[in-house]
Amino acid sequence: MTKNNESRTDEYHVASFVAYPIFEKLTEVKKAITTVDGTEIHATSAEGKIVFTIEGHSYKDIGNKMDTIRNHKCIINLSPVYHQILDESTDSDSN
């Protein structure tokens, strides 16, 4: 049953996060975030907090990308903010 969920291609997921890096490693952490496919940094505060999104095709895809970023040695904490799921099969019918 899990196999069917993973092969599903009509879902679009977007999740937002706030990363709290070691301030002296801010540039390194930003580069690590943007090297993960489907990520985009939207803002960085003066204190070094990084607001970014991850796009993917499933919960598992978002989770794997999040884990890759969360496990970076210079990230103190990674907080999820929002997660939205769109069913693209119904969106295309309405156009």
Rank of each mutant, 00 (worst) to 15 (best):
Y20F: 15
I62D: 01
V81L: 13
H13A: 10
D87R: 11
T53S: 10
N95Q: 10
K49I: 15
K30W: 03
H83W: 13
V81F: 15
K49T: 06
D61W: 00
D87C: 09
T2R: 08
E24C: 04
L26K: 03
N77T: 12
G38H: 01
V81C: 15
C74P: 00
N95F: 02
E47F: 10
Q84V: 08
I41V: 06
L86G: 13
V81W: 12
K30R: 04
R70V: 01
I50P: 00
M1Y: 11
I62H: 02
D10S: 11
F23N: 13
D61K: 02
F52K: 02
F52I: 02
E24G: 04
S58M: 06
Y82C: 13
N77D: 12
H13P: 05
V18H: 05
K73T: 03
T2Y: 10
I22D: 09
V36P: 05
T27Y: 09
Q84F: 09
V14W: 04
I85M: 15
S94E: 10
A32G: 03
A43K: 07
A15M: 09
H72C: 00
H42Y: 13
T90P: 12
I62L: 02
V51P: 00
V81P: 10
K30G: 00
N64Y: 10
V81G: 03
S89G: 08
H83K: 15
L26H: 03
N71S: 09
A43W: 05
E47T: 15
S45L: 13
T39A: 03
D37F: 09
T27P: 08
V14Q: 12
P80E: 07
S7R: 05
P80F: 10
D61H: 07
M1D: 12
L26D: 02
H42C: 13
V36N: 05
F17P: 00
V51W: 13
T34F: 12
D10K: 06
S94N: 08
K3H: 08
T44W: 14
N4P: 01
I76H: 06
S45H: 03
I62C: 01
Y20E: 14
Y20C: 11
Q84Y: 08
D10V: 07
I62T: 04
P80I: 06
T53W: 02
F52Y: 06
R8L: 06
H42K: 07
S16R: 06
L26P: 00
Y12C: 12
V36W: 03
Q84G: 06
S7I: 09
I76K: 12
M66R: 08
Y12Q: 09
H13N: 14
D61T: 07
S92A: 15
E55Y: 03
D91V: 07
H42P: 01
N77P: 00
T53N: 06
G63N: 10
T9D: 08
K30Y: 01
S58H: 09
K3Y: 07
G48H: 04
D87H: 12
L78S: 00
T39N: 04
S89T: 08
I54C: 06
N71V: 00
T35C: 05
